[in-house]
Amino acid sequence: MKKDRKHLSVSAIKDGTVIDHIPAEKLFNVISILGLDSIPNQITFGTNLESKKLGRKAIIKIADKFFKETEINKIALIAPTAKLNIIRDYEVVDKRQVEVPDEIIGIARCMNPKCITNNDSVITRFRVISKPRISLRCHYCEKITDQEHLEIL
């Protein structure tokens, strides 16, 4: 009975991607990072839903959209707890745990204003030195950008 109600709050899509377990406060960041505010696909989202793990979570359903790995990496940086369900013909055909990769290229900004990546047209590149609380070491200036200062390009 309870399960049915849950279904009502997040109506099913035929084909596409469901991004679940987004920390509620990150919902609009995720929307903006993935550029969901400027695609023609049908999108439904819910936020401040109850979650045992996160307290309050958000969920996004995007019809007819399947993400590339680099796009998923972008989500992982700000919502490492997010899970992706890939839907085909109403069935979950694949589940993916979003994972922070060991190397991040061209997604985040280096927090060092004197870094070459902030002064020249050089694509940013980092080694991830801590997870899940993100800490990135710049491949160029070797300075550390922590979660607090993390800015997505």
Binding site: I116, C138, H139
Partner: peptide
């Protein structure tokens, strides 16, 4: 500029020795 030497080493056809980058 910090990181300039690493970048230079990636675009250079010969080895680069960093004599100080910021």
């Amino acid at each position: 500029i910090e990181g300039s030497a690493r970048y230079a080493s990636e675009v250079s056809g010969v080895p680069v020795i960093n004599a100080g980058d910021g």
